[in-house]
Simulated assay, not measured.
Amino acid sequence: MRSFLPSLGVAGALTACLVSGSALAYATGQTGHSGKDSSLTCASSMCHSTTGTKPTVTLEGPASLEPGQTGTYALVITGGPGVRGGFNVATDGSATLTAGSGSKKVSGELTHTQPKAFTSGTVRFDFTLVAPSTGATLTLFGAGNSTNGNNEDTGDASNTATLKVKVGDGGGDGGGEDDGGGCAAAGGVPLLGAALLLLGARLRRRDA
């Protein structure tokens, strides 16, 4: 019994350290929680609680790009506990993301290198996206975490956002335009037939 009770005390202390340090575990960023997989977000990562006031998260940048063009984007976190913020951005398709200041790229996704302090209730993470070489419609996925800076998993909150980016023709096969041309061409056949019938009728009248 004597050896058992101290063991419980050690285990309890270790658990407390893990819990209190969970917010610090990913202070240098985490990927895989952008919301691209709806079951994996900052709220589900277990390193921050969801008890704080939710911030507003937006993705800013052009909604259309030409193939191969580079666009400048930003994930913006507004409100919430509003002391420090972190983020994770991912995209589907073959677009290439490039990290901006205070950010890094890990496994094709972007995240912060260190939590960034809010200024006037807002924190911003800039990045760029290079569009693929062919037409496509991409989706940017972003998660933003607004923390109270107490280095614990209490009182923080996060939110997610998405942004559709059309590249070139959006990946369409031009079927709509082909259909329009087909209708116009088909419409010309009856007109030609009517003209021939009218000419034939005139010729018959002359012969009569």
Rank of each mutant, 00 (worst) to 15 (best):
residue 137 T to Y: 09
residue 112 H to F: 05
residue 143 A to T: 13
residue 114 Q to D: 06
residue 138 L to M: 11
residue 123 V to S: 12
residue 131 A to Y: 13
residue 130 V to P: 04
residue 108 G to A: 10
residue 131 A to L: 07
residue 108 G to F: 06
residue 146 S to Y: 07
residue 140 L to S: 05
residue 134 T to D: 09
residue 107 S to P: 00
residue 145 N to S: 01
residue 151 N to E: 10
residue 130 V to C: 09
residue 132 P to Y: 07
residue 99 A to K: 04
residue 113 T to V: 11
residue 148 N to T: 07
residue 132 P to Q: 12
residue 84 R to K: 13
residue 141 F to E: 01
residue 135 G to F: 13
residue 129 L to E: 01
residue 89 V to Y: 04
residue 84 R to C: 12
residue 93 G to E: 06
residue 139 T to R: 05
residue 118 F to K: 02
residue 86 G to E: 11
residue 97 L to V: 07
residue 128 T to S: 10
residue 149 G to E: 07
residue 144 G to K: 07
residue 102 G to T: 09
residue 110 L to E: 09
residue 127 F to R: 03
residue 136 A to T: 13
residue 115 P to Q: 04
residue 133 S to H: 14
residue 101 S to N: 13
residue 102 G to L: 08
residue 144 G to L: 11
residue 136 A to R: 11
residue 113 T to R: 11
residue 147 T to R: 13
residue 130 V to I: 14
residue 111 T to G: 07
residue 143 A to C: 10
residue 98 T to A: 15
residue 120 S to E: 01
residue 108 G to M: 05
residue 140 L to Q: 06
residue 94 S to A: 15
residue 126 D to M: 05
residue 122 T to Q: 15
residue 111 T to R: 04
residue 131 A to I: 04
residue 85 G to H: 02
residue 124 R to H: 01
residue 122 T to G: 03
residue 148 N to D: 14
residue 137 T to Q: 11
residue 125 F to T: 06
residue 117 A to I: 03
residue 109 E to C: 11
residue 128 T to G: 00
residue 98 T to M: 13
residue 92 D to L: 00
residue 84 R to P: 00
residue 110 L to S: 08
residue 109 E to I: 02
residue 141 F to D: 01
residue 85 G to V: 02
residue 131 A to H: 14
residue 145 N to T: 00
residue 133 S to I: 09
residue 135 G to K: 07
residue 127 F to E: 00
residue 94 S to R: 10
residue 137 T to G: 13
residue 114 Q to Y: 14
residue 132 P to S: 09
residue 94 S to E: 15
residue 95 A to R: 02
residue 125 F to C: 06
residue 104 K to N: 03
residue 151 N to L: 11
residue 126 D to Y: 01
residue 138 L to N: 05
residue 110 L to I: 14
residue 129 L to M: 12
residue 120 S to Y: 00
residue 144 G to Y: 05
residue 108 G to D: 02
residue 137 T to C: 10
residue 131 A to M: 09
residue 112 H to T: 01
residue 99 A to R: 07
residue 127 F to L: 03
residue 133 S to N: 15
residue 109 E to F: 03
residue 91 T to M: 05
residue 125 F to L: 05
residue 122 T to F: 03
